[in-house]
Design a protein around this nucleic acid. Structure first.
Lengths: 212, 212
DNA sequence: TTTATAAAACCGACCAGACGGTTTGTAAAG
DNA sequence: CTTTACAAACCGTCTGGTCGGTTTTATAAA
């Protein structure tokens, strides 16, 4: 077998094992020995691919982020033309995806937070940029943030096992969050922001797109 | 000093120390030795008050839950008469309180989840009962759930350090979540609840059914 | 009030196992 | 023959938990 793909396979096995462990036993049980056991590799093998445990977490985080990055990009490409607020739509759909997929990125996030809280710097920064984009394009930025927060709440509460909602109800709520038509009734034009953006005509911020 | 209060003081010191450690160093750094160091007690002293580490976590969880239980009861007593949906209002206010207070219950939750995920059984059950009450009283149960989810999203995202919102914005969003008047525009009469006695929950709700 | 006794709170040394990480050795790929 | 991928034994430290002993409080007889 090719050397590169051999490494690739091992790295993959280790990361899959890590996710399985976190999901099954909780983040506190994620140890290098456990990863070795679960993946079939020896501890030496794991340590050859990742020099330190933090490197494992980092790789895990990056892999999950890349996955959702891809999902996000695809979704964005599909709705950019049709949606009035493509960034919000994309983010909502991505969070739904994360909530649906069992080996969620959220698990990696929790594990990272446990081991080394400042590993979250990367995801945080990315998330913040997205939030900024959402607010830029929104007619009512606060409402957009609340829709985003609603999605996060659904995701995290189900991750923490605190959601009383069935799968169906979950999907229904996400669908409602995503449906712009259901939120148009109570928009508040965000006077503060309109005033801040200089000579902007006061009313409809939704028509003002980001740099075209 | 009285014997009972001596114990009380020690238990308190240990729990305070635990919260401080979690907040400062992350849940992964919460060890019995660390608690002993931080609290000034000896390890033996800590182990006398709590026979096991799990007992510490459990006590921590229960203390925080009791605190918010009290807040919740007080708030409920104040708004029960005036609010159309006192359960929702109370829950939103409680979550805001949790998000505001620095030594949040959420920290205890995360720590418990790390150490022993099934410790979350108690909070989960309580939460579920509340959610049920919220849905009972709501004209549009799904919307109520989304407002709740929004609050949870704000809380948890700020807990994870992923909130781009300032304190002021945070407060503003919570206020908006709490203000019934801002959500009456798009209520849907909850066909699900009315028709639920049948069998089909899953109808594609995308078609908007607004109410006057 | 004093004194004898118990019970509870507390200490700090100690232990077995688990932890992250290193080292040494070997087989496969280049 | 050199480099890379992996294995397995190993190391020092940390972890949750135990244990024997000391101090403080509680009880009550003298």
């Amino acid at each position: 077998m090719d050397n590169a793909t051999r490494s690739e396979r091992s790295r993959n096995a280790a990361l899959e094992a890590a996710i399985a462990i976190i999901a099954r036993d909780g983040p506190g049980r994620l140890t290098l020995d456990a990863i070795a056991r679960e993946s079939g590799l020896s501890k030496g093998g794991v340590m050859h691919q990742f020099r330190t445990k933090e490197a494992v977490l980092k790789a895990l985080l990056e892999r999950q982020m890349a996955h959702f990055e891809e999902f996000s990009t695809d979704y964005m490409a599909r709705v950019r033309a049709t949606s009035a607020n493509p960034n919000l739509a994309t983010q909502l759909a991505t969070v739904r995806e994360a909530a649906t997929s069992p080996n969620s990125a959220a698990l990696a996030l929790v594990a990272a937070m446990v081991e080394n809280p400042n590993l979250m710097a990367l995801p945080r920064e990315r998330e913040m940029r997205r939030m900024a984009a959402i607010r830029e394009e929104a007619a009512d930025p606060d409402l957009a943030m609340l829709r985003w927060a609603g999605a996060m709440g659904l995701l995290l509460s189900s991750l923490f096992g605190m959601s009383p909602l069935s799968k169906d109800e979950h999907q229904r709520l996400f669908a409602r969050l995503l449906d712009d038509a259901q939120w148009t009734g109570l928009e508040r034009p965000a006077a503060s922001r309109a005033a801040k953006s200089g000579a902007a005509p006061g009313a409809k911020a939704a028509t003002r797109r980001k740099r075209a």
